[in-house]
Design a binder for these strands. Structure first.
Lengths: 135, 135
DNA sequence: CTTTTTGTATTAATGAGTTAACACAAGGAG
DNA sequence: CTCCTTGTGTTAACTCATTAATACAAAAAG
């Protein structure tokens, strides 16, 4: 398991959570798969074991992984079956935040959706550009 | 100018920015209107003048107000004419953030819009409930 | 020119969040 | 039983955003 960690930008534990979560919801990791041990991942990523432990704790709270003491950490059962609902739950706080901001600016839902669509296209364009149209 | 400031929740300077911005974009404050002086608002809101100064600085960066030294702070020209574009600019960072999060969770734009719509209805429902259907 | 009122700048105190150091606890392996 | 590897818990250091204390600068008012 190779993670890309940077000391600037978001907190380390958050980067770990995001990257592992993505591998689970995108199918790169399957139910029952064992994650690296806390110490193992900590060493390979050059961070403190506590930092990895915190990331794993969050993933457990989200219901994505299951920890078995003295054995290891595994992708939790149901991580693929309920994935649609799960993803809705995970994105909910972010959705709420942008809605509240929009309301505070007097932006209607339609306007918000329009801008969302527009920015989405732009982000996609930037991404393919950055990746040199790989794939 | 009466502001509602709470010491918990978001930072004070942010609350000031949000509330004054809303009064500008919603038309409660018109171009050329004078805002309270930094010291005046600081006293009436029981906060440090620096905190108000910071809020005013942000509003100036957003182009919503204009500061005239030794005179005061005023609603900037153009704050109403470009208000649609202005609002888009103000919401842009929040829109980008939720888009990036969605992408990271493998959520499509359509799914995101659907959830946005749903949550919007729920938030509206809560609000009318909390306000006792006032108006 | 002096005073007063305005915004500006510098520095420090505070608090929350993040990360690290290190010791503890539990269960499987031998 | 003993050892080793697993996750857990406690505490402290560090960083950064926020807020406050205080002094400065500029221009209008008199």
């Amino acid at each position: 398991m190779l993670l890309h960690i940077t000391t600037d930008g978001p907190p380390i534990y958050q980067q770990i959570v995001d990257q592992i979560r993505f591998r689970i919801v995108s199918g790169q990791l399957s139910v029952g798969d064992e994650l690296p041990t806390i110490r193992g991942l900590a060493e390979s990523a050059r961070v403190n074991p506590n930092t990895v432990a915190r990331a794993y704790r969050e993933l457990e709270t989200e219901g994505l992984v299951e920890k078995r003491r003295t054995v290891g950490t595994f992708v939790a059962a149901g991580s693929e079956r309920v994935s649609a609902a799960q993803r809705r739950r995970l994105i909910a706080p972010h959705v709420d935040r942008v809605l509240i901001q929009a309301k505070q600016l007097g932006i209607s839902l339609d306007e918000l959706v329009a801008q969302l669509t527009e920015r989405n296209s732009q982000l996609d364009a930037n991404q393919t550009k950055a990746n040199g149209e790989s794939k």
